[in-house]
Design a protein around this nucleic acid. Structure first.
Lengths: 203, 203
DNA sequence: GTGCTGACTAATTCTTTTAAAAATTCAAAA
DNA sequence: TTTTGAATTTTTAAAAGAATTAGTCAGCAC
């Protein structure tokens, strides 16, 4: 009866996601999640070994949704630029909707990359791999020329990340994570970045 | 007798630079700097209103050197790409030589952008303005076509910053600031980034 | 008056302690 | 196998105090 187990796992994930997205990892206790579900706290530990695992499971769940959505879009065989733009818009939307969920993971990178970093790394790779697919598609269609696709995808990702950190350090908000208002600005910079990344500046 | 005053200011700057570059801002006390100089602590406050001012003065001093060096290079009217490469190599060298000096300023951005951010912002602008000059020169020479030079310079700077944060978050070092070994990797990514920034991927 | 100092004050950082809260485990029931 | 209440261990939070360090000031010397 692994069916029932899966359903329960999904329920937990769903409730935990809501809590994490709203209050963040730090301000959410296992007891609260259990209460929301009318489960016992101990049951959560039956399904997930610890809080971090639950958190990363939620993260994975949410990121998968996004990745899949973008992959679906890619089937339409649009231009590389449109594909990338769709990807970064989707990502931005995701982060806006699950604000505190990502806020925590971001601030983690800063303080204690060793421990949590290992579990966050894979998600990073997922996004990069999607860029690889996008670029690959563009190369196939003769739209772009890329030497090392893997590395170029990473470069693209890094440069887009740079827009975020750049904006954040200029704005002097309390750093770490963009305020809702900054999302728009970051996205707009990223769009311009994509354009240059594809076309270059050369006359 | 403002001559003598300037000399003394310079001496303080020199000693403070050494201390800051070696031990960082946090682990350097005003008393230590004074002792190195055989001055009284109070005298430091005669020349600099507070520790932060001294720190930023050192930063300014060091950054000016670098900016000027690059500006000199620019007189040779090389290609945009060469100019940018020279600029980022110079910057990298500077950071390597004054390791802890920048380590502090970087980690500041994270924690308390409000207070210190104001004094760090101008340096950021200095670097960006230099990129503006470089791009401008390229446009004049018909080498590149740029819509909004100011913004493009910022985009370039942000994307290069992204290489750093990208590498750092992947490597899972104790973050904030690159280890000596990572400098090379970052620089190599930045070089590739510059190439794409100028040429684009388009077939 | 300008440049300088020693002694003083104020702010900050660094422990240490303790209490509370939250994570995690476990024996046993359903 | 799934679930729980209660016990246990870890983390976090706040408070208090000591110690270090930043910053001030009245006055000396030139």
């Amino acid at each position: 009866m692994s069916k029932n187990v899966d359903i329960k796992r999904a329920k937990i994930l769903e409730v935990a996601k809501r809590r994490f997205a709203h209050f963040g990892m730090a301000k959410t206790t296992m007891a609260e999640i259990a209460k929301d579900l009318s489960f016992s706290k101990a049951l959560l530990y039956y399904y997930f070994p610890d809080k971090n695992s639950l958190y990363t499971a939620v993260l994975e769940y949410v990121i998968n949704e996004m990745i899949n959505k973008v992959d679906t879009y890619l089937l339409k065989a649009v231009s590389v630029e449109r594909a990338i733009l769709f990807a970064i818009e989707s990502r931005m939307e995701l982060m806006r909707e699950n604000y505190n969920l990502f806020e925590y993971s971001t601030s983690l990178f800063m303080q204690n990359p060793g421990e949590m970093g290992k579990s966050l790394g894979p998600f990073f790779d997922r996004v990069r791999d999607q860029f690889v697919r996008i670029l690959d598609q563009g190369v196939r269609q003769g739209e772009i020329i890329v030497d090392d696709i893997e590395e170029t995808a990473e470069l693209l990702l890094f440069s887009l990340m740079g827009m975020r950190t750049g904006i954040l350090s200029k704005d002097l908000n309390d750093c770490l994570f963009p305020t809702p208002g900054e999302f728009e600005l970051i996205l707009s910079k990223q769009k311009k970045m994509v354009s240059i990344f594809i076309r270059g500046l050369r006359a």
